[in-house]
Design a protein around this nucleic acid. Structure first.
Length: 763
DNA sequence: GGGCATACTTAGCATAAAAACC
DNA sequence: GGTTTTTATGCTAAGTATGCCC
């Protein structure tokens, strides 16, 4: 059984997985078209397989024993669960469970826990005029919470911490100290923003909020709006049907959006052009509307050239000009890029409002090319605390609303006009609020580790269930676990690109092979996942899974749902019952992290040098990226850069040969002369050879790494799936500088892990 | 148990900035 | 020091998950 879960075996065909993606895009177009045509039928079929008509479906399968059992039980226990009870239960569990479980004690013991400081309270209001009551308090009724316990436990482990604790107790822990760095940073934030504060706030050493409160105090300056439209200069003209035509500012602006994208493939796509033209016409005056009736007669090239020249000019700007722009950006960043949340100045992620433009959906998106409206203050909802200095809307405008909801983390929101979805301004990943959540995510995944065997045994048992619903759930879960598939929420048809995840797989997305390439029971997956990235994989599965899949596919059309009795809500409800906080996506986190840890153990050897160790790390990272199907378009300059590298390698080889020759002759010299001078010369040559060998090795490693990485994106898993403590521990264990694994931004995001994990950390 | 709304995480690509190169 | 190449960052779309209402 265990072998079944080694994720390498699921990649038997990983090579072909990344090929022919273009060819298949065509194939998908066809498929999707077919899919749409069948929409009506499908809906009908769907109902055919559900609810009251369950029996019809299962009766078709009465021929064998299994099916007989199905028939009896099916549907009977599909009753919705007692929702109220469920909710209450979850609530309770939430309260009793927190991030700070026993396992964390270990990390807190580690040698990397930084010295603790007692931070003096700032003298009254500083720079930000923040209210006095900013300090994070522990709610009185929180006293039974584990966070506190953790602190107590820490005391036992570390004298330093005990010391700190004492001092805190002296203050009754009611008022958390404002960090020195904050004070410093705030005080000279405007001037020396670049300067690293001597000391970073270690939020991970503080207790967390509970029962949904995200902050007590929040103050910010609101968003930065997109700059207003600047009309084109006189000499840049738009032509219709060969004749120059001046456009109204509104129509012109939208035209420039299209003109800017002219050398992008989007503008050749029918859907894009159609959507664009329709929305563009809405912005035209009635006169323009009357004239401009055919996009093919529109000529934007002069505009296009103008923008190209502009961006060229920007590149050619003098140092001083560039510096000026940089300074201005820095000023805006300092003013709008930070907020005060509970006594700390925290970086905001996206404080700029998205500028208007043409919607660029991914894959075959039905809405590509539509006009993304300009967002005005009147569209904006501000969220901040009541007692904060509220952000001011630009002169002469008003916010849509100002609210004070501390159960959410966003500072600003607005509704976008393409899908009608809400967009948010939130904090940077380095912030406490994001970091805590991230940490918690990995703790949940680690809890899954401790019960995954039980869960696996359970779903294997469920493959035999009498209920169709349970079988489907069990097979889907098997895929999610084994293949790290996404949950697969339902999505509105026709509103987005046709992509699927596990629960939304359709019959057409898998092919069953009783035997293929010498293996039994092979399932061939071929579908478009998130971002329309193709997932292609051939996986041998267990016989029971295979038989179940045959059953699920019986009497269905290709466009029908494979798991017609399942959706993500049902699946997650089930998972929640198995483990508190468990959802489908936890499996991805868990399997990614555990794979990294395993691979690192397997691939790292003690006697390698640092570049070779890093190659091992990247290979482990790559194993995860392949598992999670994180792909990228090969860089445009890939071939060329590969070639350049090869040239460098060849040159280095020559250099090495030369150095070796020189060493040989130096040796010969020394044999003859036997004096100090010749000895020194010989040793110098020896060193040179060594150095060059090392350089060559480094280059070769680089080439291997790059080649293997051609179509694989490592960043996504590194940032979102791999418990950073695994990487930190690995670095510490092997003496690899953390900078070789994480760049500055990543180190900021994972500061908590870098601080708390020691080399013994086990995921 | 569907439908909708909301909030938040995950994702790849484009572009800016930094580093390497000549 | 200018140009090219590589890496980091910014951007925002596209997911997951959950709550609420009927």
């Amino acid at each position: 059984m265990s072998g079944d879960y080694s994720h390498n075996d699921s990649q038997i065909d990983s090579g072909s997985r990344y090929n022919d993606s273009h060819k298949h895009k065509e194939k998908y177009k066809e498929k999707e078209h077919k899919h749409k045509e069948h929409k009506k039928d499908k809906d009908r079929d769907k109902s055919k397989y559900s609810n009251s008509e369950h029996k019809d479906y299962s009766e078709k399968k009465h021929k064998d024993k299994e099916k007989e059992r199905l028939k009896h039980k099916d549907g009977s226990s599909d009753k919705p669960k007692d929702k109220y009870k469920d909710k209450e239960k979850r609530k309770e569990e939430k309260v009793s469970h927190s991030l700070y479980d026993g396992r964390l004690k270990k990390e807190k013991e580690n040698g990397f826990a930084s010295p603790l400081h007692v931070k003096s309270e700032p003298e009254s209001d500083d720079f930000y005029l923040s209210p006095k009551s900013l300090k994070r308090e522990r709610d009185d009724d929180d006293s039974e919470y584990k966070p506190k316990k953790m602190k107590v436990e820490n005391e036992d482990k570390s004298e330093k911490k005990a010391k700190k604790r004492k001092q805190e107790d002296g203050k009754n822990t009611k008022t958390k100290k404002k960090t020195k760095d904050k004070k410093g940073e705030v005080a000279d934030g405007k001037k020396k923003a670049k300067k690293e504060p001597e000391e970073k706030w270690k939020w991970w050493e503080e207790e967390r909020y509970t029962d949904g409160v995200k902050w007590k105090f929040l103050e910010h300056k609101g968003p930065v709006f997109a700059p207003p439209y600047e009309p084109l200069p006189e000499h840049v003209r738009f032509y219709y049907d060969g004749k120059p035509m001046r456009l109204s500012p509104e129509a012109e602006e939208v035209a420039t959006f299209f003109a800017k994208m002219l050398d992008h493939e989007y503008t050749t796509k029918d859907v894009f052009r159609k959507n664009f033209f329709k929305d563009w016409r809405k912005e035209m005056t009635s006169e323009e509307k009357g004239k401009i009736t055919d996009l093919n007669k529109c000529n934007f090239t002069e505009m296009h050239e103008y923008f190209k020249a502009q961006s060229e000019a920007r590149k050619q700007m003098s140092k001083e000009e560039k510096q000026k722009i940089k300074e201005e950006n820095e000023r805006i960043l300092q003013e709008y890029g930070f907020c005060i949340m509970d006594n700390h100045r925290e970086r905001i992620a996206n404080f700029r409002i998205e500028p208007p433009g043409l919607f660029r959906g991914r894959g075959d998106h039905p809405k590509m090319g539509m006009l993304k409206r300009r967002i005005r203050p009147e569209d904006i909802i501000i969220n901040c605390s009541k007692d904060s200095k509220q952000p001011k809307p630009p002169p002469g405008t008003k916010w849509k609303e100002v609210r004070h909801d501390n159960k959410v983390t966003w500072l600003v929101s607005w509704t976008e006009n393409i899908q009608g979805s809400i967009k948010y301004i939130m904090l940077n990943p380095s912030s406490r609020i994001k970091g805590e959540k991230d940490w918690q995510k990995y703790e949940t995944a680690r809890r899954l580790k401790s019960c995954v065997d039980r869960l696996r045994a359970q779903y294997r048992e469920d493959w035999k269930s009498k209920e169709m619903k349970i079988r489907q759930r069990a097979v889907a879960l098997y895929f999610i676990d084994k293949l790290a598939l996404r949950a697969g929420n339902e999505k509105e048809e026709g509103e987005t690109a046709d992509t699927v995840g596990c629960c939304s797989l359709r019959v057409e997305h898998i092919t069953l092979h009783p035997e293929k390439d010498g293996q039994e029971f092979v399932v061939e997956f071929d579908f478009l996942g998130k971002d329309s990235i193709r997932y292609y994989n051939k996986v041998p599965v267990e016989k029971r899974v295979f038989k179940n899949l045959q059953l699920f596919m019986e009497n269905k059309q290709p466009e029908d749902d494979l798991f017609d009795r399942l959706n993500t809500t049902i699946l997650n409800k089930h998972l929640q019952e198995l483990m508190d906080g468990l959802t489908a996506k936890v499996f991805r986190t868990y399997n990614a992290s555990i794979t990294l840890q395993q691979q690192l153990k397997e691939l790292t050897t003690a006697d390698e040098n640092i570049p070779a160790k890093i190659l091992s790390y990247n290979r482990a990272n790559r194993a995860v990226a392949i598992l999670c199907n994180h792909q990228r378009a090969p860089p445009k300059t890939f071939e060329k850069s590969m070639q350049n590298l090869q040239t460098k390698i060849d040159a280095k080889k020559e250099q090495l040969a030369d150095a070796k020759r020189q060493l040989k002759s130096a040796k010969a010299d020394h044999r003859v002369c036997k004096d100090e001078k010749s000895k020194k010369a010989m040793e110098a040559k020896k060193k040179a050879v060594q150095r060059i060998e090392e350089q060559l090795m480094k280059l070769e490693v680089q080439a291997t790494d790059r080649e293997e990485n051609k179509q694989i994106a490592l960043g996504t898993s590194k940032l979102n799936y791999l418990d950073p403590r695994i990487s930190v521990a690995w670095c510490k264990k092997w003496g690899v500088p953390i900078e070789k694994i994480y760049n500055k931004t990543q180190r900021e995001k994972f500061a908590w892990a870098i601080d708390m994990a020691d080399e013994d950390f086990e995921f």
